[in-house]
Design a protein around this nucleic acid. Sequence first.
DNA 1: GACATCAGAATGTCATGACAAATATGGCCC
DNA 2: GGGCCATATTTGTCATGACATTCTGATGTC
Lengths: 246, 246
Amino acid sequence: MTAKLSIDLDRSSPVPLYFQVAEQISEAIQRGDLPPGSRLDNEILLADRLGLSRPTVRQAIQYLVDKGLLVRKRGVGTQVVHGQVKRSVELTSLYDDLRRAGQEPATRVLVLETGPADERVAAILGVPAGAEVLRLERIRYAAGEPLALLHNWLPVGLAPLTAEGLQERGLYELLRSAGVRMRVANQRMGARAATATEARLLGERRGAPLLTMLRTTYDDQGRAVEHGSHVYRASHYSLEVTLIER
Amino acid sequence: MTAKLSIDLDRSSPVPLYFQVAEQISEAIQRGDLPPGSRLDNEILLADRLGLSRPTVRQAIQYLVDKGLLVRKRGVGTQVVHGQVKRSVELTSLYDDLRRAGQEPATRVLVLETGPADERVAAILGVPAGAEVLRLERIRYAAGEPLALLHNWLPVGLAPLTAEGLQERGLYELLRSAGVRMRVANQRMGARAATATEARLLGERRGAPLLTMLRTTYDDQGRAVEHGSHVYRASHYSLEVTLIER
DNA sequence: GACATCAGAATGTCATGACAAATATGGCCC
DNA sequence: GGGCCATATTTGTCATGACATTCTGATGTC
């Protein structure tokens, strides 16, 4: 099933060619032009038709393979995956996820202050114990319902954070626009029963099951930029990730 | 800080050169020969010294960047990440995780039978509703304590599964050795309170918080090879993943 | 002394060419 | 008709060469 997908290239654009190719193949898959299981033309032919070299086409395909959209097999070819994979593993915040899902997220900032780091937080963030760190406590709502209780610690001076900014744009977006380039995150998920305080803030009864998440995010150079300890109402939220084996 | 790491290449080996390079750099990092923050030699010099081309060296480095061990910055160089990243996102089973952690996992097989698939499972596995599928129910123990209740559905005829095999080697290892090549998994995590049955099997009290996981694994060609619905004792287990932004 | 400009260094992107390895397909033989 | 084998196809790996882009640091000017 050779699909005839048309790809326009703009060689004057600063966007890399392999990325232009990858994006347009990705769009064709989303549109349904390339149904699951369909075969792409082979790399040589594709390169020839696009006026590109094979390595460039390979790079584009590899990018989509890493995202879980395509599957390659030597001697066979490249196919669109069958099972609809939601989306690749990405460094997103709850805020991003909600926005993407079309829900209107709202935030109430409970705490936004600097103070000395306790031993645990200092070790995680890689600062001396007792050094000043920014502490953040928020409630996240979706569709008017409380959804999660968010607790964060950040090194001071990383980005100018205000309660207004946090309410309107979310922590990750603020960090990104301040030039912080987040690259790796370590995330641990668990569950436990709600304490009385948590139950009150989230509108659950005491002892209700909560989904917990500990996350530490590192930047470009491996420096910790954020540590979070969050609890989600299990009745209203679950976390999804896609794992890909190289 | 130019590190002098020695890399031996075996050109007669079937192992790709880029992979040999990547593994030996990775080992040097684990050993501590390349401490966090240290800079690698630049790609051109490295290629020259190893007698390889720059693309091959780049491929090796890219592989480690994807695993979260290295960080590259244009105009600067390649560095070992600071924060110790545990391990990359991998397609592993609970059995693998426990083995790696040094715990001796044990399994009790409760159910191992074929039967008609209900509508939900049929849709997930991509088989006609009512088709025969393999159903599996197990309890996983670690250090003598019950840890999780595992529920799986698989297409029939994928691999010869026996209760003995499952007890000794785990599901994923059995699938792998049967030639099933798992590539992508979609995983959803949540939490809920234990039912009476679950509480009894796991040695918790009724209503205790459980970590839940739904996972569907796809192979090479995007065909679903396994669907699981598992519950873990939140008091004894949490799930860790590492996210990497390309 | 502070700021702007410029040069060097490193990775990012892309092209061309070649051979190796794995898979599926078809034909041949039994 | 079924199984084995040669072959064509396709991706995997590797080499060489070139130019672009970005960041750092040093130099020079005001």
